[in-house]
């Protein structure tokens, strides 16, 4: 990719942002864990081909909100979601929606790298295989290669595709998990503190990768690191005690936020 085309991509992205096309729209989203309410009527829209960062102190509900976007909360006993979340105008909590199909469209990368105890190849091929995306072995090989390339891991692992995925370093494992998510060609990728278990160099690689992925995917990332939010995202949403405090352009958020609480959090006065 040369300088010109990269600039062109940036320009195209900027234009898209001006039109503002929303990929996912959350309206009055509330989440309850049994009796306890974790989210209070959150209204948050996710823009297409944009990195949206969710920040806030521990227990503020940012991860909970992230997990409502692909219904991963369904796997938690006693969890209940109210309100309305749409993906390209499909209500994802509609009883007619197949949650399996939804999660194929909205992929997820977790806090701790969680490669399956299989080979690197099988890890990436897992998603395409269960969704029947590849007919022949050659197709699967191509998908695996492309995914690993998109995750910036191909050069490091191309000679040992059939060795165990758990033998990679932490940063490589996390990029393998990203490759695994990318392999099913989702439209949105959710990332739940993807760098919190990684060292600074691995973090830098993953951040660079997020930046590149933005061209093809819509990304929502939960992060504890304000610097990371500032580095990788274009939009930032600040949560506090289960409420959405403020959602704004990242630049504005970190220089001149509208809400006093955002300012206090970013300045390190609480959290």
């Amino acid at each position: 990719m040369n300088m010109m085309s990269e600039a062109a991509v940036e320009k195209a992205l900027d234009r898209q942002m001006n039109d503002i096309s929303y990929k996912m729209i959350g309206k009055d989203v509330s989440v309850y864990y049994g009796e306890k309410r974790a989210l209070y009527d959150v209204n948050l829209n996710v823009r297409e081909n944009t990195v949206t960062a969710l920040i806030g102190p521990s227990g503020c509900g940012k991860s909970t909100f992230l997990r409502t976007l692909n219904r991963m909360n369904d796997t938690i006993d006693g969890c209940r979601v109210t309100g309305r979340i749409t993906l390209d105008s499909d209500d994802i909590y509609d009883p007619n929606i197949d949650v399996v199909e939804l999660r194929a469209r909205v992929g997820m990368v977790f806090q701790k790298p969680n490669p399956f105890p299989k080979s690197i190849y099988e890890n990436v091929a897992y998603g395409p295989r269960i969704h029947g995306l590849a007919k022949a072995k050659a197709d699967m090989d191509a998908i695996v290669e492309q995914s690993l390339q998109k995750a910036g891991l191909w050069n490091e692992v191309k000679d040992r595709l059939h060795e165990g995925g758990t033998g990679l370093s932490g940063g490589q494992q996390q990029r393998l998990c990203i490759a695994r998510a990318v392999a099913v060609s989702p439209e949105v990728i959710l990332m739940d503190e993807p760098c919190s278990a990684l060292d600074p160099i691995a973090t830098a690689k993953v951040e660079e990768l997020i930046h590149e992925l933005r061209a093809n995917f819509t990304i929502v990332i939960v992060t504890h690191s304000m610097q990371q939010a500032a580095r990788v995202s274009q939009r930032t949403a600040m949560f506090h005690l289960g409420n959405l405090v403020e959602e704004n352009d990242t630049d504005k958020m970190f220089t001149n936020p509208d809400d006093q609480r955002t300012q206090d959090y970013i300045m390190g006065r609480f959290g």
Partner: peptide, 11 residues
């Protein structure tokens, strides 16, 4: 984490 990883891929 392994369960979530698999379910998160739409399995």
């Amino acid at each position: 984490a392994l369960r979530d990883g698999s379910l998160g891929l739409g399995a």
